Amino acid sequence: MTEEIIIAGFGGQGVLSMGKILAYSGIMQDEEVSWMPSYGPEMRGGTANVTVILSDERISSPYLKMYDTAIILNQQSMDKFEETVKPGGTLLYDPNGISQHPTRTDIKIYQIEGAKLAAEMGNKKIFNMVVLGAFLKIKPIVKLENVIEGLKKSLSERYHYLIPLNKEAIIEGMGNVSPYTIEEQALPN
Score class of each variant (00 low, 15 high):
Glu183Met: 13
Gly45Thr: 08
Arg158Cys: 03
Thr51Cys: 00
Ala70Asn: 03
Ala48His: 04
Asp30Phe: 07
Met18Ile: 06
Glu120Pro: 02
Pro37Tyr: 13
Val142His: 06
Leu22Gln: 02
Leu54Phe: 06
Tyr161Gly: 00
Gly40Ala: 05
Phe81Asn: 01
Lys167Val: 14
Met129Thr: 06
Glu120Ile: 10
Asn49Leu: 01
Ser99Pro: 00
Gly175Ser: 08
Ala70Pro: 00
Met28Val: 05
Trp35Leu: 14
Ser55Pro: 03
Ile170Asn: 03
Lys139Met: 15
Leu54Tyr: 00
Ala186Lys: 12
Ile170Arg: 03
Ser154His: 09
Ile138Arg: 03
Asp30Met: 12
Gly9Met: 08
Ile59Ala: 04
Val177Met: 10
Phe127Leu: 11
Ile109Tyr: 03
Ala118His: 07
Pro37Asn: 10
Gly97Ser: 02
Glu168Arg: 15
Glu157Ile: 14
Ser60Ile: 15
Lys80His: 11
Asp94Val: 08
Ser178Ala: 08
Gly122Cys: 05
Ser77Leu: 15
Asn74Leu: 08
Ser25Phe: 14
Gly88Cys: 12
Tyr110Arg: 04
Leu73Asp: 01
Met66Asn: 04
Tyr180Trp: 14
Ile148His: 02
Leu91Ser: 04
Ser99Trp: 12
Ala115Val: 12
Gly46Thr: 14
Phe135Gln: 06
Ser61Asn: 10
Pro140Cys: 10
Asn74Ser: 09
Ile107Ala: 06
Asn49Gly: 01
Asp79Glu: 13
Thr51Ser: 00
Thr47Lys: 00
Ala48Val: 08
Gly14Gln: 03
Lys143Asp: 11
Gln185Trp: 04
Tyr63Leu: 13
Lys139Ile: 15
Val52Asn: 00
Ile126Glu: 07
Met1Gly: 13
Thr2Met: 13
Thr181Val: 14
Glu42Asp: 04
Leu187Ala: 14
Thr2Glu: 14
Ile5Tyr: 11
Leu22Arg: 05
Thr181Met: 14
